[in-house]
Design a protein around this nucleic acid. Structure first.
Lengths: 134, 134
DNA sequence: CGTTACGTTTACGTGCGCGTCAACTTTTCT
DNA sequence: AGAAAAGTTGACGCGCACGTAAACGTAACG
């Protein structure tokens, strides 16, 4: 089987993060690479989680919130109560994300208006606003 | 004319922030309330800006980035070069926000999948997952 | 006229998300 | 064998976005 683990450097290169960041995430229990002697080896699981972590960060979630979300993606055979709790948390996150989406749409619409105004203004002043909005 | 200005406390109450926050934003030149003696009086302009500030924060923009965006919403009669610069910044922000929207849509879709899985799993285990997705 | 309420400045403290050494072990190249 | 490369564990530092406490002004109320 194709060596499925990666060194810390390989992880850093493919995700664009620093070693410090990966160790920090491990300390926060977001990642749990296996150890070969002293060295960390990151599994496919770690990669999947890291992807989710980085995505979560883009949406302004804290690492702690992200940790809760990560659990959802791995509730294979947990306890019933645990599953139910995680499920509720997930619903809350979903609601929050959909609210964010709505707000984002509104913000984009408003910003576009402003930009259009700016384009017209620039045109009126005879300045190139080389941005042919497809 | 209906007194159009608000005290710091009125602002805090209607926006759900603390006085410290408003003073902090003023120090960062995001707000510029007028002074009546020593006291701050927030104008309609300040309220509009604060609304945009809080929205920007929800999307993970830094206060400095938000300050740049705010300029866009007030480039009434600035210099040509200033207008052009602000215009470019706005385009960059728009691109970033649209990218965020795309990523957010994807994340929402995936989270929904997980939630559906969780709902089925809970059902199979005979647990109520009272959340009839409309 | 005191005190209660609301506001102010100044300044140090805090939590998060890492950055940045320092000092050290463990391969790996030549 | 010797040196460079890659990894490790502390531990302190830093920028951001405020929190929080101290000390003070001022204006209104009973």
């Amino acid at each position: 089987m194709t060596e499925t683990t990666m060194t810390i450097r390989q992880m850093c290169d493919s995700f664009g993060v620093t070693p410090r960041t990966l160790r920090f995430y491990e300390a926060k229990e977001l990642l749990s690479p296996i150890r070969e002697g002293q060295k960390r080896l990151f599994t496919r699981r770690d990669r999947a989680r890291l992807k989710l972590i980085l995505r979560g960060k883009k949406f302004g979630f804290s690492l702690e919130e992200i940790r809760q979300l990560l659990d959802l993606y791995e509730m294979e055979g947990g306890e019933d109560t645990q599953l139910a709790r995680t499920y509720k948390i997930a619903l809350a996150h979903l609601a929050e994300m959909e609210a964010q989406r709505a707000a984002l749409d509104e913000a984009i619409a408003e910003l576009k208006e402003q930009i259009d105004w700016g384009a017209r203004e620039l045109a009126a002043r005879g300045i190139a606003s080389n941005t042919s909005a497809a």
